[in-house]
Simulated scan of single mutants.
Amino acid sequence: MKLKYCVFLGIIVLLYSCDKPVDLPDFDESQWQSDHHGCSGVRLQMLDNLEQAKEHIKGLSEDEVVRVLGKPDKNELYKRNQKFYIYEIDNAEECGQKTEGADHVYLNIRFNATGLAKEVLVYRD
């Protein structure tokens, strides 16, 4: 019984220690993460790089996305265990800058029931 438990525990430790590093090409993760809600304008300047990295984000797990992009500004749960992570790229209202008619720009990542990113969209509201 102890042997089975030790083997099982060893396999679990081995699986968790094999995390692959996630690196988005031409994308500075630390700058992105430091600009909460897009208030500093850094995320908006990185929009072209983000558009190029969208295909690399697809297929990442929730944990990998959080490691690369940081904690989402908002998240939503839908039916069939789908999740959406929303990162604000440009949101003047959230930052206390009232601007009439200004667009809000968001990154929306949809995760399926298995926790993998299936859709990555940048949209304006």
Rank of each mutant, 00 (worst) to 15 (best):
F27D: 04
D28R: 15
D28W: 08
S30F: 03
S30R: 01
S30N: 04
Q31T: 12
Q31S: 14
W32A: 03
W32V: 00
Q33G: 10
S34Y: 02
S34C: 03
D35E: 12
D35W: 02
H36A: 13
H36L: 04
H37D: 15
H37Q: 14
H37R: 15
C39V: 13
G41D: 11
G41I: 07
G41F: 11
V42I: 03
V42Y: 02
R43K: 15
R43I: 05
R43A: 11
R43W: 13
R43N: 09
L44A: 12
Q45N: 02
Q45S: 09
Q45E: 05
M46N: 05
M46I: 01
M46E: 08
L47P: 11
L47E: 12
D48H: 05
D48E: 07
D48P: 03
N49Y: 13
N49E: 15
L50A: 03
E51K: 15
Q52F: 06
A53I: 07
K54N: 05
K54Y: 03
K54P: 02
E55F: 11
H56N: 12
H56Q: 04
H56P: 12
I57E: 09
I57L: 07
I57K: 10
K58A: 06
K58L: 04
K58E: 10
G59P: 08
G59M: 07
G59N: 01
L60C: 12
L60Y: 11
L60I: 10
L60S: 03
L60G: 07
L60P: 11
S61C: 09
S61F: 00
S61L: 09
E62K: 06
E62N: 07
D63E: 12
D63C: 08
D63I: 08
E64S: 15
E64W: 14
V65Q: 09
V65K: 05
V66D: 09
V66F: 11
R67M: 09
V68E: 06
V68N: 08
V68H: 06
V68P: 06
L69A: 08
G70L: 04
P72M: 10
P72T: 04
P72L: 00
P72S: 05
P72K: 09
D73W: 14
D73C: 13
K74S: 01
K74W: 10
N75W: 11
N75V: 06
N75S: 06
E76C: 06
Y78I: 04
Y78C: 03
K79W: 04
R80V: 04
R80Q: 06
R80K: 02
N81C: 06
Q82I: 05
Q82H: 07
K83V: 12
F84S: 06
F84R: 15
